[in-house]
Amino acid sequence: MTEIGTAAAERSVSSTPPAAAPAPAKPERTRRPAGRVQSSLGVSLLAVPALLYLIVFHYLPMAGLVVAFKEFDISQGIFGSPWSGLDNFRYFFSSGDAGRILLNTIFLNVLFLAATLAAGVTLALMLNEIRGRFFKRIAQSAVFFPYFVSPIVISIILQVLLAGVGGSGGLVNDALLGLGLPQVSWYTEPGPWPWILTFVKVWQLGGYMSVIFLAAITSIPEEVYEAGAIDGASRAQLAWRVTLPMLRPTAAILLVLGVGRIFYGDFGTIYAIVGDNGTLFPSTDVIDTYVFRSLRQLGDFGTTAAVGLFQSVVGFVLVTIAVLIQRRYSKENSIL
């Protein structure tokens, strides 16, 4: 019974993305080559404002990357400072902690990425099931709200939950006590923190991600569902077989974009929550917090830029690999 439904879904899946339907495009291209070229130039004009913008505000300042190879001197500025070769790069790698920090960065980012994507998709699917207009609206606003809460306020709330005022215990410990479980000194125990931080990220971004996926769901053509429904599939089957596959392109984009930033620690959130609490560093110290901590006094733009450049280059390599894999296995979803 579901065979027809899936087939119908697949049909429309493959017919929606333009590149997946090369058959009608090709004859047209050969039919009117001149018009096509002209109009592709015409349509390219649309990108001109953004392109000029990118050049002025992003590519021109990239000249500043040279400071990574310089011995930075305040009065001589970026371009006047003397060259120092790869000296600035040595600082991070000669640190005995480099290995652990790299591992932390990747581990936390993978956790964050996987958890927020999963939460976003699940939440979007569930929200899509809800039919009461009023409840749906309220729910959507409610789950989006955490995105606005600043990391400082998050850190205050966490302290109330996990430490209490003056370290008196906190709500969670009170609950543990009530259940007859041993109390935990959360702020000196590094073990649980990757999970606590992941929970915070899901809380922060689950709603945000779900909005992206919901928008994708709303553009799924109704016929797809009609076919499935006639077929007698349950709501869960529709969600699993019809909606979920349609979210793949969006998820793929978010995934590839996330992979590129896997070497960037989430400084804003982690620093606001962990701060300079050394006891939690074994599991929470990432590249960005480490660099901030060791260089805040020196104000050395050169070394900071060197670490940043390293992160960018590694990110670039990873993204290239991700895109190549994507092109190979699902060409129509490739973004680059």
């Binding site: 300042p61 500043g64 990357l65 500025g77 974009l257 590129g260 993204v319 680059l336």
Partner: peptide, 29 residues
């Protein structure tokens, strides 16, 4: 423009758009 997959245009544009997500010149510039 990127979504249209125009030959010689869309892919370079996509790359140009993506790179600033990775590389930044920093605060000073």
């Amino acid at each position: 423009v990127i979504a249209r997959r125009l030959p010689m245009i869309s892919r370079p544009l996509a790359v140009l758009t993506y790179l600033p997500m990775l590389f930044t010149g920093g605060l000073v510039p």
